[in-house]
Amino acid sequence: MSLLAQLQLADSAFPGGLYTLSHGLESYAQAGPVDVAALLEDVLLHAAGPGDATALVLAHRAVRRDDWDTVVAVDQRLHAIKLNRELRAAATRTGNQVLRTAATVFATPELLRLVELTGAGATPGNHAVVLGTAYAGLGVAEDGAVTGDLYAFAASWVSAAVRLRRLDFRQAQATLYGAGPAIERAAAAALAARDPLDLYAATPIADTMSCAHERATARLFTT
C-alpha cells in the first residue's frame, strides 16, 4: 500500500498546482536559446537536490522520530534559502494545497499535525516538507520518497519545456530518462544530509533569471 500511496502523491494528477510552474525555465526561454537537459541537470544538482529534496529527507526523518521542532526548522530554513518571492510563494502555495488534499485523503496523524502547525502560522508549509511529512506517515521509505520526488520535479520541468515549445513530446521523455543519473546523484546527496544547516541552493544565474520573471510582461507560468 505504501507504494500505491507514493505513486498517487508523486503523480502529476495529484492536485498541487505544479503545472503552473516552470521552475525558472520560462525566464531562460524568454531570454534566448536554452539547453533544457543541461539546465535541468544543473538545477537538480545545485537547487532541487540540496534544497527541496534535502528538506524532504530531513522532514521525513524528523517526523518518524516525532521531532516537530526539527520539522519546523527544516521548513523555515528551506523558506529562507529561496531567494525570490515567486519561488517562495510557489513552494508554500503548492505545499499548503497538497497538505489540505493529502490530509483529507490519507488522514494520517502526521499530516493533521502539520495542518495545525501551518494553520497556526508556526511553519510555512513548503511543498517538500509537506511531502516528507506525508511519506513518513504513509510508511514510504526515505530513499524511494526522495527519488520519486526528484523524478516528479524533472517530469514537471520537461512538461513546462513542451508548453514553452523548447522540446517536443518525444524529446521530453528522452530528456526525462536522461536525467536519471542526475536524479540519483541529487538523491544520494540529499540522503547524506544530517542537519537543517545542510540545506542550501547555489544557482545565482537561475535566481537572477527568476528575478527577471517576476517583472516579465508576458508569461504562462507562475515561476
Partner: peptide, 18 residues
C-alpha cells in the same frame, strides 16, 4: 492575477490549487 501554465481549464476544474 493567477498564471495557469497554459492550462486554463485545469486551473478551475481538475486542479484549482493555485
Amino acid at each position: 492575477g493567477v498564471e495557469t501554465g497554459s492550462c486554463p481549464h485545469t486551473a478551475v476544474r481538475d486542479d484549482p490549487s493555485m
